[in-house]
Design a protein around this nucleic acid. Structure first.
Lengths: 140, 140
DNA sequence: ACTTGATCTAGACCTCGCTCTAGATCCTAG
DNA sequence: CTAGGATCTAGAGCGAGGTCTAGATCAAGT
């Protein structure tokens, strides 16, 4: 059996899927869509071999996606990195504006949480009172 | 001009759209999908008239959706409410498990935020150093 | 050599959650 | 009375983000 450990460096698509949580389908899809920083190396037989750098990038991608960055932005970011040094300011703007969105999202979720918590409270209290109140219908 | 204020009670679909942030299309769609608690009243001419209760329910829906509850769950909840008293325990379970998901989401987002913040920091520092470092390429 | 499982490509297909269109009707201001 | 906008229904269409299929190839263990 040949694994990343025994071989030292590069990983198969399956191993990368395991490590990133993305499916092998998604990994191929991301590559087709130009979301990767460089072209993935191949074995003589045509199989993909991912390097540590590829995996690190993918792990970042996962975090950005998880927090709602659209694939289009991710693609733009990958393009900037591919172009090499010189556009760091734009990369920073991209990340920074995403960070704002994440903050906003967190605030929105916290508000939702409090609304839901209130509603959970209403129901919990009702159930605790048991049959003591026949006429309770919060249509909610 | 006839508005909710001049009329007193019920609202047109357009007014509800304004108040909930949902589009009129979405409102009709929600109704078709059975996401509302009761049938919406109509004028003699067939136009929808929403009551205060309808709007309150929609506002809850908006919060639940905003926090990622799938329409299917929302529909289930609406069904339970339509069925009337007796199933409060199930309603509570539904809300409660959604609340868990929201908490998890917030935690995940906070982790993303910290990863992004770190990356923003890396770029910001790099840019602050200006041209002082020709050989900097974090492939990131 | 053979079997088994992972991977390959190209492209079709899927779910979710709306959004939009067409063509008709309603209703209110002027 | 008329023009305008708001609303109606049924159903098609859309964008995002993958997921899945078919049919072929590769690679490892036995």
């Amino acid at each position: 059996m040949t694994t990343a450990e025994t071989r030292g460096e590069s990983l198969s698509i399956g191993e990368v899927a395991e490590r990133t949580g993305l499916s092998v389908h998604a990994l191929r899809f991301y590559e087709r869509e130009g979301l990767l920083v460089g072209p993935v190396r191949r074995t003589s037989g045509g199989r993909r071999r991912y390097t540590r750098v590829d995996v690190d990038w993918l792990l970042i991608c996962v975090k950005l996606r998880e927090s709602g960055m659209p694939l289009a932005d991710l693609k733009r970011f990958a393009e900037l990195v591919r172009q090499g040094p010189g556009n760091e300011a734009e990369r920073l703007r991209l990340l920074d504006s995403h960070q704002q969105r994440v903050e906003a999202q967190i605030r929105a979720l916290e508000e939702c949480r409090s609304v839901i918590a209130w509603k959970v409270g209403v129901y919990a209290e009702h159930l605790a009172r048991g049959q003591a109140d026949g006429l309770w219908d919060p249509t909610v």
